[in-house]
């Protein structure tokens, strides 16, 4: 009995126990993660993305990588704790920094993986959406979106492990401001038209079949949607942007 007590008090034994426990918990967490990710439909969501394809080609999958990452994270903690208990390395400063650093690296890697997957997925979805538009130049839009997402993911990951990212952030801000500026400038008419379109759809000051005049165009209303009103006469069909309705006003013809 006394022997047992002495044995339990031995740091090396405790360290070994911690190590074994860590291995078991790590393995279990990895398995649990895998099951959870599979159950929540992650394999379907990431299917077809280049990241998943690369993972497949080296004989693994996104779910496997994420699950194994969480296992290794716990293994790492277990090993470090064991080393600390066994007092193999007696440097407190080193120990402190490592414990701070490991979770950050873990989160950074996770953010990177997530960033890659989201970027690939965004590219896939957007290019799918643009497939109907048979214009070769349009393929730059999904690429641009992909790299924007990747850039943000990199900034977050670098920020996580404590690299100075101020310059990168400024670049991002300039880029975002540019996109917003160009966007509002290019889509100004669309925004105004759709705002008016919402009013037209809600209040219906005129409806299909009415004869109206908008500006110079007179005709029977054929269709009202968010951006345009289609009015037509016997020989002409006018497609009037909705903002003209507010700029010029509407005249409703009475018989």
């Amino acid at each position: 009995m006394v022997d047992w007590q002495a044995l339990v008090d031995e740091p090396a034994v405790i360290a070994a126990a911690v190590l074994v426990l860590g291995l078991i918990v790590g393995y279990l967490v990895g398995r649990l993660n895998k099951e959870l990710l599979s159950a929540s439909g992650v394999p379907d969501a990431v299917e077809g993305t280049p990241f998943e394809r690369t993972a497949q080609s080296i004989g693994t999958s996104t779910v496997d990588i994420v699950a194994r990452l969480s296992s290794w994270f716990i293994y790492g903690i277990a090993v470090l704790t064991a080393i600390h208990i066994a007092q193999l390395l007696d440097t407190d400063a080193f120990w402190l920094r490592v414990t701070e650093f490991i979770p950050q690296v873990f989160v950074a890697v996770l953010v990177l993986i997530l960033g890659f997957i989201i970027a690939d997925k965004v590219e896939l979805v957007v290019s799918e959406y643009f497939r109907g538009v048979k214009l070769p130049e349009i393929s730059i839009v999904p690429k641009l979106l992909k790299y924007s997402v990747l850039y943000v993911a990199f900034i977050i990951a670098l920020g996580q492990i404590g690299v100075h990212i101020l310059a990168l952030l400024i670049l991002l801000a300039v880029y975002a401001a540019g996109v917003v500026l160009v966007g509002t400038f290019a889509f100004k008419d669309f925004l105004v038209s759709s705002a008016v379109g919402i009013y037209l759809l809600l209040n219906q000051p005129y409806s299909i079949g009415d004869e109206i005049t908008i500006g110079d165009q007179t005709g029977i209303v054929q269709e009202v949607d968010l951006f345009v009103t289609k009015i037509e006469t016997d020989s002409q069909e006018y497609i009037v942007p909705n903002r003209k309705v507010f700029e010029e006003g509407i005249v409703r013809m009475r018989e």
Partner: peptide
């Protein structure tokens, strides 16, 4: 199709249940 013209060549029998609907 051609709903504007059709509406002008028809009249309502009663209140239109689809008025102001989308």
């Amino acid at each position: 199709g051609d709903a504007g013209k059709v509406m002008n060549k028809s009249r309502p029998l009663s209140y239109n249940p689809f008025e102001k609907s989308h």
